[in-house]
């Protein structure tokens, strides 16, 4: 047996994060940790320690897929982990992220009003109003929460689907954060890779 580390239990964090969003949407802001930490580690550490050891979502997929046998363990189609799809999906995901930030800006400027909905898979609107009472914080802070939680839930759903159909961590093969951090690492280590 391999030695257990404290960070081997971060899959619990992933569950807690999604659970908190059902009670108070403002907790969605905590998800920014999962956005910033991998980038900081990649830029300053030049490695993917986050993906390899800290990613709660990846661990959750491993737990459900491998330990709970919720995965068919079939090979995923090759294009799913091809460069063009990985970078294409990353660009799509980032575009949707910028779109979400722009919506937040519109609410902050008063050009549009706060919408208490979660948008799943960028299309399906689900009323989510019970998690927020208007006026608790600035409208834009709440708007960002709804938008960010939508992105997190959407990617988790896609991840769960590919986990069931293919390998447990198939999501990792086209995860936008993984693609981004790997690209940063490759730029940092380009001299050593060429050898």
């Amino acid at each position: 047996m391999k030695k257990r580390h404290w960070y081997d239990y971060l899959w619990i964090w992933s569950i807690i994060y999604f659970a908190l969003g059902f009670f108070n949407i403002l907790f969605a802001w905590l998800g920014l940790i999962d956005f910033l930490v991998p980038i900081i580690i990649a830029i300053f550490g030049g490695n993917k320690f986050f993906c390899n050891n800290l990613c709660g979502r990846g661990q959750l997929f491993s737990k459900l897929g491998t330990d709970c046998k919720c995965s068919r363990m079939k090979k995923a189609p090759k294009w799913l982990s091809s460069k063009w799809f990985r970078y294409g999906f990353m660009i799509f995901f980032l575009t949707m992220f910028v779109n979400m930030v722009f919506n937040t800006y519109l609410v902050a400027e008063g050009a549009s009003s706060l919408k208490e909905v979660i948008t799943l898979l960028w299309t399906i609107k689900v009323p989510w109003g019970w998690t927020y009472q208007q006026g608790v914080v600035y409208d834009w802070i709440a708007q960002f929460s709804f938008g960010f939680y939508s992105l997190m839930l959407t990617s988790a759903i896609i991840g769960l689907i590919v986990m069931i159909f293919y390998k447990p961590r198939t999501w990792c093969s086209f995860c936008p954060m993984g693609t981004m951090t790997q690209a940063i690492c490759k730029i940092k280590a380009h001299k050593e890779i060429k050898k």
């Binding site: 391999k2 490695n47 993917k48 390899n52 990846g58 982990s81 993984g178 690492c185």
Partner: peptide
């Protein structure tokens, strides 16, 4: 060329024979 450096191989390897080279 195809590795996405997710690191799951390093976790399952019983010999600790795999490592991710600088996140690449």
């Amino acid at each position: 060329g195809r590795c996405v450096s997710c690191g799951v191989c390093t976790k399952v390897c019983p010999m600790n024979a795999i490592s991710i080279f600088k996140g690449c």
